[in-house]
Simulated assay, not measured.
Amino acid sequence: MPTAEASTTVEDVVRRRRGDLVELSHSIHVEPELAFAEHRSCAKTQALVAERGFAVTAKPGGLDTAFRAEFGSGALVVGICAEYDALPGIGHACGHNIIAASAVGTALALAEVADELDLTVVLLGTPAEESGGGKALMLEAGTFDDVATTVMLHAGPLDIARARSLALSQVAVEYTGRAAHAAVAPYLGLNAADAITVSQVAIGLLRQQLAPGQMVHGIVTDGGQATNVIPARTEMHFTMRANDSQSLTELEGRMSDCFLAGAVATGCGHRVEATEPSYLELTPDTWLADVFRDEMRRLGRTPVAAEFEAALPLGSTDMGNVTQVMPGIHPIVGIDAEGASVHQPGFATAAAGPSADEAVVEGAVMLARTVVALATTPAERDRVLALKAARP
């Protein structure tokens, strides 16, 4: 099948299914579910492809709210990631309902041309992107082993074809001291709350010397239970980010010293534990991103110029782990959120608005046509397959 014919076919499929895709997006949006508890959203996301004849495998990697839906038997195995977890308190303020619906639209479209283009289409339901690293866990479990390239999109305030992200790790820091009456015998206590204070001061001073791209942010999750009792246990959670994994490792070492400082200064014990898998930095495939940028322009969008994309960090995502293993893209499709950005309540409202509905449909069109371009460009198809063959 020629490229032009296949591209037209996949676009027609998406536009014919517009009602179903928008309904899916709104249905996920109205029932937000948190990481590893997205049971209704997981079921909704796989329903349309199951009806189309995709073979659905539940719980890949042992994750209850993950799935893998497969169609076709072609040599080029293309993964499409669907996210559907929400944020505590502010629902779909990251627009994962848009991601899920656009991924379903992409999969339905590519199924229509899978035989002609020698494709295997794999829709991957990937839970817990906001917290928990579902894709990292699925990678480790082998769910992506046969996939040659993976695509997905994300909503945001701008159109960005070659989006990047920061490497990330998260830890819980526990301090253990000794309880005592705060007025009668404070000298008998070891104040675990003071350990947090010392650590936070050290981190605040460290911020002056952080390398470009490095950042830290944290919260106290347990600061004591009563003002008249010296706290014997406290806990805080910290997130560390950096431009790449090497820089993140350096930052982790410096933060470890700050955590230790709180213990040393107060005489408390302390323990630092990772709370989820590390997120690696996005390394989008240049060729795929360039095709997607052209698709944005074709539909009248105005993507950020390629030379400015690197200046726009977009938080962190476990899709970065996937792009470290295989060619992939994670473009940002802009929606009108009236000045709000991701992780703000205004963005949650916008994620079910008219421009979000357009992002679902146009996003699926652009992703599907990008995959068609890959499948019908012999040199690029061979490159991706060769990279797959060379993987351990």
Score class of each variant (00 low, 15 high):
Ile335Met: 10
Ile335Leu: 12
Thr370Ser: 05
Ala350Ser: 03
Asp382Met: 04
Val384His: 02
Val361Gly: 01
Val342Pro: 00
Thr370His: 05
Gly346Phe: 14
Ala350Ile: 08
Glu358Ala: 06
Gly353Cys: 08
Ala340Arg: 08
Ala337Asp: 04
Ala340Ser: 15
Gly339Ile: 14
Ala352Val: 05
Thr370Phe: 09
Gly339Gln: 07
Ala337Cys: 11
Lys388Gln: 15
Val372Cys: 01
Pro345Gln: 12
Ala352Phe: 05
Pro378Lys: 04
Ala368Ile: 07
Ala359Phe: 14
Leu385Thr: 10
Val360Phe: 12
Lys388Met: 14
Ala356Trp: 09
Ala390Lys: 06
Thr349Trp: 08
Gly363Gln: 01
Leu385Lys: 08
Ser341Asp: 09
Ala350Phe: 09
Glu380Cys: 05
Thr370Met: 12
Pro354Glu: 07
Val365Ala: 03
Val384Glu: 12
Ala350Val: 07
Leu367Lys: 01
Glu338Pro: 01
Ala386Glu: 15
Ala364Ile: 03
Arg383Trp: 01
Glu358Gly: 02
Ala350Lys: 05
Leu387Asp: 01
Ala368Thr: 06
Leu387Ile: 03
Arg383Met: 11
Ala386Val: 09
Ala340His: 09
Val371Gln: 02
Gly346Glu: 10
Ala390Leu: 12
Thr349Cys: 03
Arg391Phe: 01
Val360Lys: 08
Gly346Tyr: 12
Phe347Tyr: 13
Ser341Arg: 12
Gly339Lys: 10
Glu362Val: 00
Gln344Asn: 10
Pro354Cys: 02
Met366Leu: 09
Gly363Phe: 00
Phe347His: 03
Arg381Gln: 13
Ala368Gly: 04
Phe347Ala: 05
Ala389Pro: 13
Asp382Phe: 00
Asp357Gly: 07
Asp336Cys: 05
Ala379Asn: 05
Val360Pro: 14
Ala356Ser: 09
Gly353Gln: 07
Ala350Glu: 06
Ala351Cys: 07
Ala390Ser: 14
Gly363Cys: 02
Leu385Ile: 05
Val361Asp: 03
Val372Arg: 02
Glu358Asn: 02
Asp336Phe: 09
Thr349Gln: 11
Val372Gln: 02
Ala352Pro: 14
Met366Gln: 00
Ala379Gly: 06
Ala359Ser: 13
Ala390Gln: 11
Leu374Arg: 04
Phe347Thr: 02
Leu367Gln: 01
Thr377Met: 09
Thr377Lys: 06
Ala356Pro: 14
Ala364Glu: 08
Gly339Asn: 11
Asp357Pro: 08
Gln344Phe: 13
Ala379Lys: 06
Pro354Met: 03
Met366Glu: 01
Ala386Ile: 07
Ala389Gly: 07
Leu374His: 10
Val361Thr: 07
Val384Pro: 08
Lys388Arg: 15
Glu380Leu: 08
Leu385Pro: 15
Val361Trp: 07
Glu380His: 13
His343Glu: 13
Glu338Cys: 13
Glu380Gly: 04
Thr370Gln: 04
Ala364Lys: 08
Asp357Trp: 12
Pro354Thr: 04
Pro378Asp: 15
Ala350Thr: 05
Ser341Val: 15
Glu362Trp: 01
Ser341Cys: 11
Ala373Tyr: 03
Arg369Ala: 03
Ala356Met: 10
Val361Phe: 03
Glu362Asp: 10
Leu367Pro: 01
Val371Cys: 06
Ala390Asn: 08
Thr376Gln: 02
Ala379Ile: 03
Ala340Glu: 04
